[in-house]
Nucleic acid binder design. Structure first.
Length: 497
RNA sequence: GGUCGGAUGGCCGAGUGGCUAGGCAGAGCUCUGCAAAAGCUCCUACAGCGGUUCGAAUCCGCUUUCGACCUCCA
């Protein structure tokens, strides 16, 4: 446990990096907005959840007890035309609304598993918290920050602002602008008093299938409300971290803040973290413009944007090579570079486990370098979870490992103790913190290891007879199977191509 | 249109007022029967134009350009 390191996080609320201080010593409550399960998981979702996965893993490692809540939205998310997203999906596919939700929730979970993303502590469903949402609407009404119109309830942003609350603080919206825009747009609003007001309860039309009774009407909750209600239920009125994609800042997160302040008098989270968007070939991903690629297409290679398939872990690695707050451009070249870099890292990891160098039992010159790099990686991660910088330092470690394995660093230059520390931390950072894993299955790996041992021994005899044709035949044959032999001073090693 | 954030070497991408990011690609060397791997070395860039400064890719302004948000969005 590494507790008590100073962590800096970029807080969207402040627009700058701030020292992270949890409300309760040693405990962290973190809420991240989950997906709306009305269609297949989008690559952008994956990047966001990969980013928060690393944050979750790292905070736990630092010794914090983290409760990570990530919801699933299965109701209440309105489309442009006012139709519920779940209903739209249902009508198109001739399925029950909950069937749609289940189908895509399953798909989402499968994608999380494929990307090696750890499960959150709690994964609440919006439909499972209708009562809590109705309670929150009541509280907001009681405090006078909402009004009812024809069975629907709207949040009164003007009253909220006039009461001195900073609406727009998170997204940089100016209160005066919101106030000023009233007149022109007002005529387009049927029930809302002001364009910036938003629904917290909607009366359902007759054809609406997903609806629940409430004091105001048979209807359904507004989209922003579920996160407020569920974060409050599981993390309390005030918690530490609230995260999500950059595109949720406004209106979603802004409205969440308003709802929390409106119902219980204070902002829900101290630190707001936002992940940035994914681009494809320098342009935003857009289904309507055909500029999009799905996780499945990435894994199968079936897309005009890429030349080959990429494994989930090489995609995860590719994502982590960019900071979570930067946009990341997906290109075929970039993915290939990522894939090769990932392989180099994993090869070094395998090497570190396979070789058993005999090194100095006393402290040696390179020992300090090992400590420095490890310390640097901790600093990198403590500085707003800078995974790309940490990865750069992991490549430094890989270089050291390879040099030691090759005996390019003399045994007198580094101690046995430092070597153990080096390889343990190398594995720990890659596997446990960055959440990358070896993609070859273990059972196959054991068999293959044994077979390879045998083949290498046989080939050694052939080589000792200087039967180069026979030796090459073995090597070329293995290459056909995707296995590369590496003849070195210390004997022969191998890896997958 | 309004608000905000970017523009880094062949490509992807960190970062900092003066000190090597890293990966991929390319070149050379070491090792080696050959090859591959690995190691070492090289290629050393910060959109443009001004300004601040002893010194700016890093701060400020303008221009160009890309992107995000502006009640669908991770």
């Amino acid at each position: 446990m590494e507790n008590k390191r100073k962590i800096l996080v970029f807080n969207s609320l402040a627009g700058e990096k701030q020292e992270f201080k949890p409300i309760q010593e040693g405990r962290i409550g973190m809420y991240v907005c989950g997906p709306t399960v009305y269609s297949n998981a989008h690559l952008g979702n994956c990047r966001t959840y990969v980013s928060f996965d690393v944050i979750f893993r790292f905070l736990k490692h630092l010794g914090y007890s983290v409760r990570y809540v990530r919801n699933i939205t299965d109701v209440g998310h309105l489309l442009d035309d006012g139709e519920d997203r779940m209903l739209k999906g249902a009508r198109l596919e001739q399925l029950e609304p909950m069937e749609i939700a289940q189908k895509y929730a399953n798909g989402f979970h499968e994608m999380m598993r494929i990307f090696n993303i750890q499960n959150p502590s709690i994964e609440p469903l919006a439909t499972g918290h209708i009562i809590e949402q109705i309670e929150m609407v009541k509280e907001i009404l009681e405090r006078g920050f909402a009004y009812e119109k024809n069975g629907s309830v709207y949040f009164n942003t003007i009253r909220y602002i006039q009461s001195g609350n900073p609406y727009g603080e998170l997204s940089g919206r100016v209160v005066e602008d919101l106030m000023a825009e009233s007149r022109d747009n007002l005529k387009n609003q049927d029930e809302k008093n002001h364009p910036s007001d938003f629904a917290i309860w909607m009366k359902a039309s007759d054809e609406h299938i997903m609806k629940w009774p409430s004091p105001w009407s048979v209807g359904f909750p507004g989209w922003h409300l579920e996160c407020s209600a569920m974060s409050k239920k599981y993390l309390g009125e005030q918690f530490d971290i609230h995260g999500g994609g950059n595109d949720l800042k406004f209106p979603h997160h802004e409205n969440e803040i308003a709802q929390s302040v409106g119902s219980c008098g204070h902002s829900p989270a101290n630190y707001w973290l936002h992940t940035n968007m994914l681009l494809l070939n320098g342009r935003k991903m857009s289904k309507s413009e055909g500029n999009t690629i799905s996780p499945e297409q990435l894994f199968t290679g079936e897309s005009k944007f890429i030349s080959k398939a990429y494994s989930p872990m090489s995609v995860r690695f590719f994502m982590l090579q960019a900071h979570y707050r930067s946009t990341l451009d997906i290109t075929d070249e970039g993915l290939q570079a990522g894939e090769k870099g990932f392989k180099r890292l994993m090869d070094a990891l395998a090497t570190s486990k396979n070789v058993q160098p005999e090194l100095s039992s006393n402290s040696a010159p390179k020992d300090e370098l090992v400590s420095e790099i490890i310390e640097q990686i901790y600093s990198d991660l403590c500085d707003d979870f800078n995974a790309p910088k940490a990865i750069a330092n992991l490549f430094e470690m890989a270089g050291l490992i390879n040099s030691i394995a090759n005996k390019q660093i003399a045994s007198t230059e580094i101690s046995q103790y430092a070597w153990e520390k080096l390889k343990d931390h190398f594995s720990f950072f890659i596997i446990d913190i960055l959440g990358l894993k070896d993609e070859s299955s273990e059972a196959n790996e054991n068999t293959t290891n044994g077979l390879m041992q045998l083949i290498i021994e046989l080939r050694k005899d052939v080589r000792e007879r200087k039967d180069w044709a026979g030796s090459d035949k073995i090597r070329d044959g293995l290459k056909e199977l995707g296995i590369q032999l590496k003849d070195g001073k210390e004997g022969t090693d191998w890896s997958r191509i």
